[in-house]
Structures are given as C-alpha cells and as structure tokens.
Simulated assay, not measured.
Amino acid sequence: MRVATATALLLVLSACGDRGPARTPDVATPAPAVEPASQPSSGTPPPPPGAANGAMPAPGVIGFAGFGPAPFGSTEEQLRMAWGRELGGMKPDTPQGCYYLMPQPRTQRGYRIAFMFEDQRFVRMDVNAEDIEAPGGGRVGMSTQQIEQLYAGHVQVQNHKYVEGGKYLRVPNPDGGAGVVLFETDASGRVTTWRIGEPPQVDYVEGCS
C-alpha cells in the first residue's frame, strides 16, 4: 500500500511540474529580477495583501535608474530578460508609440506592476500593489504624512488632475539622477498607486492614453 501511495504522489508532483510560467526558449538569460510570491507557513504571519496574487520583484530591484539590469532607456528584450517571466501587451501602430507590458496572466487585483515603453525604449513602471516597495520605502496604502517623512525635503506636492482632494507627491532622485517616483493619493490622503521613471513620461497623467 505504501509503494502504491508513493507512486501516486510522484505522478501528481510530476504533472504539477509542467505548469510553471512560460519562458523565452533558446535564450541565455541572467537570473530574473523577480521572485515567487511568498506563501504563508505555519506559525508565521501572512504576506501583505496581494503577495499571493502575482510574481514579486526581488527586493531593491526597482530603483530610480530602472529595473535591475534593465535601466530606463533599455530595449524590450533587455526588460524581458530582467523580468524573466511572461509579459504581454498591445503594441502601438507606429514604432514610436507608447505601450505597456504586464505580467501574464493578469491577477484578480489588476496589473500590480506594468512596464511602459515609448519610442521602443523602457521609460517607466506603474505599480498598484501594496506589497511592492518604491525606492526609499514608499508603498500603496501609505498616508501623505508617511511619504513626506520617508522623503523629507524632497516631496513636491501637486493637485490631482481627476480626483478632487487627491494629490501627486513627486519625489526626484535624492542623489541627483534623472529618475522620479510619483505617488498618487485619494481625497483622504492615502496612496492609491505610484510610478517611477524619467521625465517626461513619468509625468504622463493618462499613461499611454
């Protein structure tokens, strides 16, 4: 009976092993700058909201200069290699157009992280997940006061174009580089989404629209 049970378990594990994320075939790639979403274990607290709903960037990989080994200005191929998992999105009608690549498949919580390209260059990242951290420590769900404390002396406050009472909290790279992280808040002063990139694309209010 034990032999039969062990054989059945081995067959189940083998079948599950074929369901991993698709990767680009026959291309030598560096270690991806993402890590699997963490799973709760016995005796440990659960992960932040959304952590079980999609791939997570490795800690510290998002920076004012870009996404790990893919700095702003990189090609789509370089960004795909840095992400290391499946990305999908609609291409523009012209090579100079703007478009996003997003992790696939999409999660119930939306896109979580999206990579903007314009003129065939990687120019910006958009994040709407509580468990993905901006350089300097900012996150979705934080208050305006928390953002101002984290980036003391560097926050530029602007009125939101569409949300009455909402704000844009714009933080240029404290070290003097071209990168900017921009937090959007609702009327209550809570961060609902953030993006990071270089001007002018980081300031596009409607994304690629």
Score class of each variant (00 low, 15 high):
Arg2Trp: 13
Ala4Asp: 11
Ala4Met: 10
Thr5Phe: 13
Thr7Ala: 14
Ala8Ile: 13
Leu10Glu: 13
Leu11Phe: 13
Leu11Ala: 13
Val12Leu: 06
Ser14His: 13
Ala15Leu: 12
Cys16Asp: 13
Cys16His: 15
Asp18Glu: 13
Asp18Ala: 15
Asp18Tyr: 15
Arg23Val: 14
Thr24Pro: 08
Thr24Gly: 04
Ala33Gly: 10
Val34Arg: 08
Val34Gln: 05
Ser38Gly: 13
Ser38Phe: 11
Gln39Cys: 11
Pro40Trp: 06
Pro40Leu: 05
Ser41Pro: 14
Thr44Leu: 10
Thr44Asp: 12
Pro46Asp: 01
Pro48Gln: 07
Pro48Arg: 01
Pro57Ser: 03
Ala58Phe: 12
Gly60Ala: 08
Ile62Gln: 01
Ala65Pro: 13
Phe67Asn: 06
Ala70Leu: 10
Phe72Tyr: 10
Ser74Asp: 02
Thr75Cys: 11
Glu76Met: 01
Glu77Trp: 04
Gln78Cys: 04
Gln78Glu: 06
Leu79Ala: 05
Arg80Ile: 09
Met81Glu: 12
Met81Asn: 13
Arg85Gln: 05
Glu86His: 06
Leu87Met: 07
Met90Thr: 13
Gly97Tyr: 01
Cys98Lys: 01
Tyr100Trp: 04
Met102Lys: 15
Met102Arg: 15
Pro105Phe: 03
Gln108Glu: 11
Arg109Asn: 15
Ile113Glu: 12
Met116Tyr: 01
Met116Val: 08
Phe117Trp: 06
Asp119Cys: 05
Gln120Val: 01
Gln120Met: 03
Phe122Val: 03
Ala129His: 02
Ala129Trp: 08
Ala129Asp: 03
Asp131Thr: 02
Ile132Pro: 09
Val140Glu: 08
Val140Arg: 02
Gly141Thr: 06
Gly141Ala: 02
Met142Ser: 07
Ser143Thr: 05
Thr144Phe: 03
Ile147Asp: 01
Glu148Pro: 01
Ala152Tyr: 12
Gly153His: 02
Val155Ile: 04
Gln156Ala: 07
Val157Asp: 00
Gln158Lys: 03
His160Gly: 01
Lys161Gly: 02
Lys161Asp: 01
Tyr162His: 14
Gly165Ala: 05
Tyr168Asp: 03
Arg170Met: 14
Pro174Gly: 00
Asp175Pro: 15
Gly176Val: 03
Ala178Glu: 15
Leu182Thr: 09
Phe183Trp: 02
Phe183Val: 07
Glu184Trp: 12
Glu184Pro: 13
Ala187Asn: 07
Gly189Cys: 08
Arg190Gly: 06
Arg190Ile: 05
Arg190Asp: 06
Val191Leu: 01
Thr192Ser: 04
Thr193Val: 09
Trp194Ile: 09
Trp194Gln: 09
Gly197Ala: 07
Glu198Trp: 13
Pro200Trp: 03
Val202Ile: 09
Tyr204Val: 03
Val205Ile: 11
Glu206Pro: 15
Gly207Ile: 04
Gly207Ser: 11
Ser209Thr: 14
